[in-house]
Design a protein around this nucleic acid. Structure first.
Length: 611
RNA sequence: GGGGAUGUAGCUCAAUUGGUUAGAGUGCCGGCCUGUCACGCCGGAGGUUGCGGGUUCAAGUCCCGUCAUCCUCGCCA
């Protein structure tokens, strides 16, 4: 009998994770992969693995000699369940074993390039090349299972709240601004291109105009930008939009959905409502629009000290409109050596600061630091007061334009917290799911940013901080664009930006004014957004929405640092798929069909690289 | 586009100041072993030191270039 026969007896009666003592004596068949073999001579053990667990199989040596089992062979085993002579309490199925009467090979396996085991120590490159083997590992399967449960729970939570799941096009229209688009040439329309959506933004707004009222979608989004541990060129959002709402309605909806999702998918309780912080306050206190509030060490305005310091460099920066800000690292005098201070300096320089001053306060002559001579006597006492510092602390300072101070010190705060292990460890879905889960709404983002060097080489201009469909605080857009507030908000979890959204512009006149402020010409507006403006002239409802990065929240809830481990088939930092070798060249006739040809290509790869 | 790290056996790593035949663990193959579960014991095979060039009597080691992977700045509305 072969495995391919219809009605063959190889089909499993149980999975590899479910047999227990009360199955003792039962005749069963298991299917799975050979995880491990132990040949004791005369008696032969194998651990049989599937997605549900591992069960020990015992077989007489002569039976093994017939089938010749190798690691990762896919087999069917039939026999009788028996209590073990020597139980293994570390395995859920450890009280029993399956005494094999017959073993059938369903397929054989070559020796795998790495061992299929939970503990992992293999180069990412190899794991990605053999992703189907990597995904056989139990921890990877648990990650994908958690992802499936999490998204399922979230979907249910939205459905329960009257949200309708609607799919939007993948082949769509290029939008200006924002990230680079992935383009798809059209065969039917020579010389024209579709773009893959960076998000379903405009479609979901049009669904509101259509009166769908409450929409959501598990939406794949595409952005042709450089990658990071938390960024893939294609990623998944839980995208939603609601009509007749303001900010608090959106927040409440998400707080409900998220607390339900955490409870249903991982048994975790998260307190609601989430705290809120204005963008300005987040920047001022944490130097980041996605602050990790699981620890303190907030930024401190050292401005009040500067007039007392007699330190010309700081004074002239303040007079020039800049700021002097700092951090006080409690106990940092001991914890951070001179060499480490050099590291801190490198960190702030990475973020555009010209330098970093530091000071270890010491009342009895023990003070040290690059600015110690300006911290004598009253000046030092004043500085300790401003910084809230005591002997044994380390104070660091950045003096620069406000955004530089924020950014550099915000990054430094994270770096120091990591170095000094101030960040609490997270119990993910695997470890009871107790977190801590530190959610935060960041609100009141600026409406516009000044772009001095547009990537397209165009003239300096304002760009939308969020996107051009975000409602301003003032529908009339009166006053200085640089100071205008918007109705955009972000959701932050443990220092990661999880998602963003806004109340949208539902007034055609306001939308037209925003396009105008962004420097778009009449023709350009008509060509790119004519259909949106047209739609806004047919009674659009006030509406707003939000989208959350599912890859990120799934990774975070597993306590992982990289979203690659919760994406089944991820791409490398060079946006390549090492398994199927995408991207790749195509046949010339395919290009001819699409009316495209190569411009000058960079020199082709000459090394022995596999792709 | 910029900065940093890494690249040695199938896998994870070692190899002193540039110096003899590039080692170990694991996996793989063969043999022995009837209660193992990281089974144990004995034996064996396995190397373009990412790729290309250079310096040198001599390069895994030094220099230049290049490729790949990871981290990161810019970028990511």
């Amino acid at each position: 009998m072969t495995a391919t026969q219809v009605g063959a007896s190889w089909r499993r009666t149980h999975n590899c994770g479910e047999l227990r003592e009360d199955h003792d004596g039962a005749q069963v068949t298991l299917n799975g992969w050979v995880q491990q073999r132990r040949n004791l001579g005369g008696i032969y053990f194998i651990d049989l693995r599937d997605r549900y667990g591992v069960t020990q199989i015992v077989l007489p040596e002569d039976l093994e000699a017939e089938v010749k089992l190798a690691r990762e062979d896919c087999i069917a085993v039939t026999g009788v369940v028996a209590k073990r002579e020597a139980p293994n309490d570390r395995m859920p199925t450890g009280q029993i074993e399956l005494r094999a009467a017959t073993v059938e090979k369903l397929s054989t396996s070559k020796t795998p390039p790495f061992e299929i085991e939970e503990k992992l120590d293999t180069a990412v490159e190899l794991r990605l090349q053999y992703r189907y083997l990597d995904l056989r590992r139990p921890d990877m399967q648990r990650g994908l299972m958690h992802r499936s449960r999490f998204i399922g729970a979230m979907r249910n939570a939205f459905l329960k709240r009257e949200f309708a799941e609607v799919e939007t096009p993948i082949l769509t229209k290029a939008t200006p601004e924002g990230a680079r688009d992935y383009l798809v040439p059209s065969r039917v329309h020579p010389g024209e291109f579709y773009a893959l959506p960076q998000s379903p933004q405009i479609f979901k707004q049009l669904l509101m105009v259509a009166g769908m009222d409450r929409y959501f979608q598990v939406a794949r989004c595409f952005r042709d930008e450089d990658l990071r541990a938390d960024r893939q060129p294609e990623f998944t959002q839980l995208d939603m939009e609601m009509s007749f709402v303001e900010e608090e309605d959106i927040f409440a909806a998400w707080e409900g959905v998220l607390s339900e999702t955490f409870r249903d998918s991982m048994g975790a309780e998260i307190p609601t409502p989430f705290p809120r912080l204005s963008w300005r306050e987040a920047m001022e206190r944490f130097g980041s629009d996605k602050p990790d509030m699981r620890y303190g060490m907030e930024l401190i305005d050292a401005g009040p000290w500067v007039p007392h310091s007699g330190f010309g460099v700081f004074q002239s920066i303040v007079e020039g409109g800049g700021r002097v800000m700092g951090l006080c690292v409690k106990g940092g005098s001991e914890g951070i050596s001179r060499g480490n201070i050099k590291k801190l300096e490198e960190v702030v320089k990475t973020y555009g600061a010209k330098g970093m001053a530091w000071w270890k306060p010491g009342l009895e002559g023990g003070a040290a630091g690059s600015i110690v001579k300006f911290c004598q006597g009253d000046s030092g006492a004043k500085l300790m007061e401003v910084m809230g510092a005591e002997e044994g602390d380390l104070c660091v300072f950045v003096a620069d334009e406000e955004p530089v101070c924020w950014k550099a010190l915000g990054a430094l705060r994270t770096y120091v917290a990591r170095t000094l292990e101030m960040i609490p460890s997270v119990d993910g879905a695997d470890q009871g799911g107790s977190g801590p889960w530190n959610f935060l709404w960041v609100t009141d983002f600026p409406m516009f940013e000044w772009d001095a060097e547009p990537a397209d080489g165009g003239k300096p201009r304002y760009v939308s901080q969020h996107h051009p469909f975000t409602a301003p605080d003032d529908w009339e857009l009166a006053g200085d664009p640089a100071k205008m507030g918007s109705r955009a908000y972000d959701l932050v979890l443990n220092g990661w930006e999880l998602g963003s959204g806004s109340i949208r512009i539902h007034r055609q006149d306001t939308q037209a004014k925003v396009f105008d402020l962004l420097g778009l010409g009449k023709e350009e507006i008509e060509m790119k957004f004519g259909f949106l403006l047209e739609a806004l002239s047919y009674g659009p409802p006030p509406h707003g929405g939000f989208a959350i990065g599912l890859d990120r929240i799934v990774a975070l809830t597993l306590g992982m640092e990289s979203i690659r481990d919760v994406v089944a088939f991820p791409k490398t930092t060079a946006a390549a798929d090492l398994m199927c070798h995408a991207p790749s060249t195509v046949d010339p006739h395919q290009m001819k069909d699409l009316f495209i040809q190569h411009a000058d290509l960079p020199r082709p790869k000459e090394d022995g690289s596999k792709s």
